[in-house]
Structure formats: C-alpha cells, structure tokens
Simulated scan of single mutants.
Amino acid sequence: MNVQGLRFAANMSMLYGHLPLLKRPAAAAAAGFTAVEAWWPFSKPEPGDKEVDAFAAALNAAGVHLVAMNLIEGDMRAGDRGWLSSPDRHGDFLASLDTATGFAERTGCTMLTALYGNREPGVDPDRQDRLAAENLATAAVAADRVGARVALEAISRREAPDYPIIDADTAAQTVDAVNEITGLTNTGLLCDLYHHGRSGEDVPALLHTHRARLLHVQVADDPGRGRPGSGKLDYPAFFAALTGIGYGGWIGLEYEPTRDPAVDFDWLPAPRSGV
C-alpha cells in the first residue's frame, strides 16, 4: 500500500483502550506517533478541573498532539452511538459542549467528531432528526468560536442497526442542512472507510463525490476490524483515492490492536504520523 504523503493519528480509545486513559498518550508516543485522536475521554459531561488537567498533562508529557476528539457519545463498547438525537440526553449533550470546546482550544485540537445517535424505542424519528440538527448547529457555532470544525460520521447498519446515518450521501444531506442553519461552513464528514466499505459503498467514488465536505478519515479492515491489509477491503485503492483528491487531513487508526506494534503498524512508514 502506498501511503506516502498521508498523515496518520493513533486512535487511543481503540488501540490503547486496554490501558488507563492517562497512559495512552505515552503508549502512542512509544509506538512512534506524534498525533492522536480519542473518543470522549472524560467520565461525565462536565468533568472536574482535576480530570481535565490530568489528561491535558498526559498529552503534553508524551509530546503528542490531539488532532480529533469525539463529542460525548455514551458507552461505545456497550452500543451507544452518540447523543445528538437523544431527547433524554439533550441536557447532558449541551452541558458537555463547554468542556469539548474548551479542551479543543486548550490543546489545539481542531476536529470535534460527532455521532448521530441510535433510533430510540417510543421516540418519534422526526423529533430525533430535528433535535440532532439543532444540536449539531449548536456544536458547530461553539466549535467555530475556538477555530474547530465538526465532522459527522456514518456507520454501517451491520455494525449499528439502529443508527440512521448509514452512508455518505445521508450524512452529507445532514451536514449541508446544518451549514445552512448556521451560515457557517465548519460542519463536514468523517468518513470511516471501515463502515463505508462494510456497507458495500464504492469508497473511492464517495471520496471523490464528497471531497469538498471531507474533514476527517478513519480506517480499519473488514472482517475483524483490524489494521488495513488484514481483511478484504481494498485499501490500496482507498489510499490512492485519498491521494488523488489531495486529501490533507488526518487519518485516524481506529482499529482493534493485536497489541504488538511490530504487527499493528508494520504497514506504516516511519515516522508513524506521516508528513
């Protein structure tokens, strides 16, 4: 696979999820990364200063740059997929935004990634969609104040059957609607090539179609959600497409590790983070 010219960031929540949070930045640095991303790293929507300060200090001590962070999404391992569209979590989502944008400004993180949320039993889907648009717009305005952008992710129905944003086109429609609401242009797409490939989408084609909306990329292979090259997805073609469209953003390595750096990252050149 030719990945020259592309930039990679270690997803600490998956690659190092077996470690305590404060040890993950050092583990990424030890593997040769200078850039990292994370799911929501805090224990609650409004963590105390001590918890926030400790994570910032761990990033700084390891010498790694946080390039992307999830807006609060719930328990991902338990099946939660975001709170944007959840009426019951509306207050908690809004409460978390000050933490998210404040931490982004503090660390120089310019990408806040957003998960839409699952359909909920007994809740009108239209109500959820209106709430998601409202929350995304609120997040976009808050992010803009600190020079950050918001990237919405589609997820394969095979992975999350109750998640309604299942492909790039659907995500793009939501993104365009939010930008129209805010009058800004800082909401775009997070294309996780694992999900798009698993859904059977033409990944090179969608990257070309949505290149103007593309803010962030993540990768894993299928089946198994391991490193690129471990499954059947055509990553040489995917990376060639990213190079072809002139993608200059970060590519998050959001895959299940073997915990052996010689195996997990042997497909990457050194330095790990790329150019």
Rank of each mutant, 00 (worst) to 15 (best):
N2L: 08
V3E: 04
N11G: 01
S13H: 04
L15G: 05
L19P: 00
P20Y: 07
L22S: 03
P25L: 06
A28K: 02
A28V: 09
G32S: 12
A35F: 05
A35K: 09
W39C: 10
E46Y: 07
V52M: 11
D53N: 10
A56G: 11
A56W: 08
A57W: 14
A57C: 14
H65E: 13
H65V: 11
V67L: 02
A68E: 04
G74K: 00
D75A: 13
R81T: 10
G82N: 02
D88R: 14
L94I: 14
A95C: 10
L97S: 11
T101M: 06
T110H: 13
T110P: 06
L112T: 06
V123D: 06
Q128G: 06
N135Q: 13
R145M: 14
V146C: 03
A148T: 02
A148F: 00
V150K: 09
E153M: 01
A154F: 05
A154I: 05
R157C: 03
R158T: 05
E159S: 12
D162G: 12
Y163E: 08
Y163W: 04
P164S: 11
D167H: 11
T170N: 07
E180I: 10
I181T: 10
G188M: 00
G197T: 00
E201R: 06
P204H: 05
L206R: 01
H208P: 13
T209R: 11
A212Y: 15
Q218I: 05
A220K: 04
D221L: 08
G224C: 08
R225M: 12
G226Q: 04
R227I: 04
R227Y: 09
G229N: 09
S230G: 07
A240N: 06
A240R: 06
A241F: 09
L242D: 05
T243S: 15
G244R: 12
I245R: 00
G249P: 00
I251G: 01
Y255V: 08
T258N: 04
R259S: 15
D260H: 15
V263Q: 15
V263L: 15
W267A: 10
R272L: 04
S273N: 07
V275H: 01
